[in-house]
Design a protein around this nucleic acid. Structure first.
Length: 581
RNA sequence: GGGCGGGUAUUCUAGCACGGAUAAGGAGACAGCCUCCUAAGCUGUAUGUCUAGGGUUCGAAUCCCUACCCGCCCGCCA
């Protein structure tokens, strides 16, 4: 929105001129605030010392120097040491309505920036279904990716598939060797058995039986060890089989993600960096630096104590004593790979990865790489009884959460809209249920620890996904009833308090998108959406849009603007926007 | 032991990065609002030592220090 930017610039300019006229030094910094009481406020406290005047007196003096209205500045009032500026609302509203009329659905969308951004998210080990403890990862990651796309960046989302190591080897051994009878027995013996008939849920039992056997049968230990050895040695048969099992599991995980409207553009398999020698290249590079050393047993490490890493975490080991690579080594190779494909590399990670991520950055620095991934960490979601654990049965699966949400949404829609067809009701229930779940997860700051409670996760009113969807449906309903109309961009037609508030809120969409881009705080998007929706509801209650009046077309254009902004906000959140509900 | 992050009304969260004017929103409670565009909505009322204590500042929820509570991490695992 050019008007708001211009307005702020004009205000700053006016204040700077007034200050100069009063003999203030030219290096004074202006603080800009956007309170509810004014369109822009500038506090004058910092000017008190150099001018040797009371802040309130300065504010009054500056206000009298500025001859408003002038340009986009409708007025200035001094209050308690603040300068409160108000914008020329007619110009602002006209600007907004014009943009909406011209851009339609793409209002607020950024022009292509050409910046290639890689967002890696989810990347959970393909050894079991996604549970709510980690559900923040796909939701935060996907939301961020969508916001950056809306901003105009060229975004690729990516899942790093862990198909290397003991866990996945065990998993595939279990799939190959555990019989259906053994699986059945294991399920029967489990107290809170997971009886969902979906690959990722089923295969967990193969893994469980396998881990039990390794403790009970001594030969099994050797068998797994030999498999691991063959894997490390690059035995294609073993590697391919492990990958196949991981792929099967991934199929189940992806079904869950798809139900949440999360799809990944690309999958990178960890084993690739062993196969193509990239991990070995990392080893060679790290060994040739002044920071590298070897332990008594021959494992290589670099010393990170000069890189801001404290305590006993300074030894960053990158090979085993037998020379084979470690997860972290391959992660370095993976990041080099990502750097070659993208201008910005973003990792969405659990907070347990903080140290690892810091070490990775230091290692990159040691290798002479002047690039770093941008890490976005999230705290785990726990249950009232403690940390989620599949093993202990203290767990809520994302599949169950989605099902429950959709069921409850279905019950609601059935209550309200018996006029709709069964098919419509189901579609809306799905959109609403998924919307509620995604919204409730993304609305809180990612570093806040969350305790999962069904009633919070499934909230359909107040500050919720369905609230935004409802407002979108209301706007659609008005537009549907209005039929065809000629867009009116004359801002002077809209004078009601709520019309102006709405217009100002809508005008901020681009700024919010920019903020999300810069800070990666995705929770600003639902907060903004809620603000717009709430103001629309006030407007809706106060102003009859369809009623014949001089302002009808302008109001309809404003409703259309709300519809588009809300639709785009919901898109950013990965939430569908049904036209009725 | 060391490092990192959280602690805001009964409850859940926003605000903190960049210090500013009476600390914002949701749930829950209470009281109103469907002869008018979807009541999953709107309006109003009540509820706070922003964990505690120091410091910096004209001004601190926000910055600094200390303590306490909670979470996470500190493998030749992935």
């Amino acid at each position: 929105m050019i008007v708001m930017e211009k307005f702020v610039a004009e205000c700053e300019d006016a204040v700077v001129k007034a200050l100069a006229a009063m003999g203030a030094p030219s290096d004074l910094r202006l603080v800009k605030e956007f309170p509810e009481t004014a369109d822009l406020a500038i506090p004058c406290f910092t000017f008190a010392k150099p001018l040797k005047m009371a802040p309130a007196a300065i504010a009054e003096k500056i206000a009298s120097e500025i001859k408003a209205p002038c340009g986009l500045i409708a007025g200035v009032t001094p209050l308690n040491g603040y300068l409160n500026f108000t914008v020329d609302t007619t110009a602002l509203v006209t600007d907004l309505l014009t943009e909406v009329a011209e851009q339609g659905e793409s209002f607020g969308k950024g022009k292509p920036t050409g910046v290639r951004v890689n967002v890696e998210h989810t990347s959970t080990n393909p050894t079991g279904p996604v549970h709510v403890g980690r559900a923040r990862n796909p939701i935060i990651g996907d939301t961020l990716a969508r916001c950056l796309r809306m901003r105009g960046h060229d975004v690729t989302t990516e899942y790093y598939v862990n198909d290397v190591g003991k866990q996945v080897v065990m998993m595939s051994w279990g799939v190959a060797n555990v019989t259906p009878e053994e699986v059945q027995k294991e399920i029967e013996e489990t107290e809170k058995a997971d009886d969902r008939d979906k690959v990722d849920h089923r295969l967990v039992y193969n893994y469980r039986v396998a881990t039990k056997k390794i403790h009970e049968v001594p030969e099994m230990e050797a068998e797994i060890a030999s498999l691991l050895e063959r894997f490390e040695a690059g035995d294609q048969e073993v590697i391919d089989y492990v990958k196949k099992v991981a792929e099967t599991m991934l199929g189940g995980i992806n079904e869950t993600l798809a139900a949440m409207n999360v799809t990944l553009d690309r999958y990178t398999w960890e084993s690739k960096f062993i196969a193509n020698g990239a991990a070995k290249e990392i080893v060679a590079k790290l060994q040739n630096t002044p920071y590298s050393g070897k332990t008594e047993d021959g494992a290589s490490y670099v010393d990170l104590k000069d890189f801001g890493i404290h305590g006993k975490n300074t030894k960053f080991t990158f090979t085993r004593s037998d020379g084979t690579t470690l997860y972290t080594t391959r992660d370095l190779a993976y990041h080099m790979d990502k750097f070659s494909r993208a201008d910005r590399v973003i990792d969405v990670l659990g907070e347990d990865q903080k140290l690892g991520s810091q070490q990775l950055c230091s290692a990159l620095q040691i290798m002479g790489v002047d690039r770093k991934p941008e890490a976005l960490f999230y705290a785990f979601v726990s249950l009232p009884e403690g940390r989620m654990s599949t093993r202990k049965g203290v767990v809520v699966y994302l599949d169950d959460l989605i099902d429950e949400a959709v069921d409850r949404a279905y019950a609601e829609i059935q209550k309200r809209r018996s006029d709709l067809s069964e098919e419509q009701m189901q579609a809306i229930a799905r959109a609403v249920g998924v919307g509620a779940v995604r919204y409730n997860i993304v609305r809180v700051g990612s570093d806040k620890q969350l305790v999962f409670k069904w009633e919070d996760a499934l909230s359909f009113d107040g500050n919720s996904g369905p609230y935004l969807q409802y407002v979108h449906a209301r706007a659609c309903s008005i537009l549907r009833k209005a039929g065809k109309f000629e867009p009116c961009t004359d801002g002077s037609k809209l004078t009601d308090e709520y019309e102006i508030k709405l217009a100002k809120a809508l005008a901020r969409f681009e700024a919010v998108l920019k903020d999300v881009d810069e800070t990666k705080r995705v929770n600003m998007m639902p907060a903004y959406g809620h603000e717009v929706a709430a103001i629309f509801n006030q407007f809706y209650a106060a102003v009859p849009v369809l009623q014949a009046s001089d302002a009808r077309e302008a109001r309809l254009t404003l409703v259309e603007a709300t519809r588009v902004v809300l639709k785009n906000v919901l898109w950013c959140l990965g939430i569908e926007s049904p036209e009725e509900m």
